[in-house]
């Protein structure tokens, strides 16, 4: 068995997601190669070489891969695919976009967002907003799998010394070009990797209240900020704050849900947190069914009091 892991990176740095996906690859077992595909991305490839249990790092460094476009990336991975039994990527925005293209052209079924490796050909994945887990078996010769990052521990950053193999030619499909990109700049930890997440919902009432109440709390806890869909739809915060079935999946040590009712779509994104705190004025709110510590209170007084007490 030989597994190809597609690295997550911002072209300079390897993202921690890569190390989680690598753990999933190790759970499958076998020889593991990592593909770093991007432009001017050799620092990321160098970092990948030290990851444990990796024998080869494939480096595809080409201007056509600057924008992580699914058409070019999919085509590249498709070309490499015949040498592998498994292709694994994070179920990130990039992974979700190009991996189905690879599966399609290999004529195999992609297995999305796995949370467990049951065997080399059998995987478990959440369905119905995580209300259920389905275990599925595949007989396809190449397994194309995306991995839920929070379901696998990150492996160490060092310990390996993989060989570096450059991939000379990369095709440009001409189908898609990036016009602009606007990434939120923040000094806070990234939502998906954060140890503590402070998350706000419709109960906050306005963008101003969200900022006034939750930012100081997050500052004290060095936490990432998150939100429910309602808070995003109402414009309290940008879309990439959304936690849930159709947003980000997080599993921090501590998740503080403020003014969030606990719809199943929201729970889908955070119920694997180690400790959940809920602050909500409605004692019947569903969020309390998953909270380790529930405080029935008006958030307008409880949150400043909490911030002051820390």
């Amino acid at each position: 068995m030989t597994i190809l892991v597609i690295a997550e990176h911002d072209h300079r740095h390897l993202k921690s997601a890569t190390r989680h996906v690598l753990s999933a690859a190790h759970a499958v077992g076998g020889d593991v190669h990592i593909l770093v595909a991007g432009h001017s991305c050799s620092p990321a490839a160098e970092a990948a070489r030290t990851l444990p249990g990796v024998t080869q790092v494939l480096l595809a460094d080409h201007v056509s891969l600057t924008a992580d476009g699914a058409e070019n990336l999919g085509h590249l991975v498709l070309r490499l695919a015949p040498s592998y039994t498994h292709i694994l990527s994070a179920s990130s925005a990039v992974g979700k976009s190009f991996m189905p293209r690879v599966a399609a052209l290999l004529d195999v079924a992609q297995i999305s967002d796995i949370v467990r490796v049951d065997a080399t050909d059998t995987f478990t994945r959440p369905i119905y907003a995580g209300a259920l887990w389905a275990t599925v078996h595949t007989q396809d010769p190449i397994k194309v799998v995306t991995v839920r990052v929070t379901a696998f521990e990150a492996c160490a950053e060092t310990g390996g010394h993989a060989a570096l193999t450059p991939i000379p030619e990369v095709a440009e499909s001409g189908l898609s070009t990036r016009q602009s990109i606007a990434l939120s700049v923040s000094t806070r930890p990234e939502l998906e990797g954060a140890r503590v997440v402070v998350s706000g919902g419709r109960g906050l009432g306005s963008a101003e209240r969200y900022k006034e109440l939750l930012e100081p709390l997050a500052d004290k806890l060095q936490a990432a900020l998150g939100a429910s869909r309602a808070a995003v739809d109402l414009g309290y915060v940008p879309n990439d704050y959304q936690v849930g079935q159709t947003g980000k999946i997080v599993a921090p040590d501590l998740y503080i849900a403020v003014g969030i009712s606990g719809a199943i779509q929201h729970l889908a994104g955070m119920k694997s947190a180690r400790v959940i705190v809920a602050i909500n004025s409605d004692p019947e709110a569903a969020i309390f069914t998953v909270a380790d510590y529930g405080l029935v209170a008006d958030l307008n007084s409880a949150v400043p009091e909490l911030t002051a007490a820390l």
Partner: peptide, 12 residues
């Protein structure tokens, strides 16, 4: 809507 923000692309 991508991880970390927004991207605008032009597709054929």
């Amino acid at each position: 809507e991508i991880d970390g923000g927004l991207e605008t692309i032009v597709v054929q």
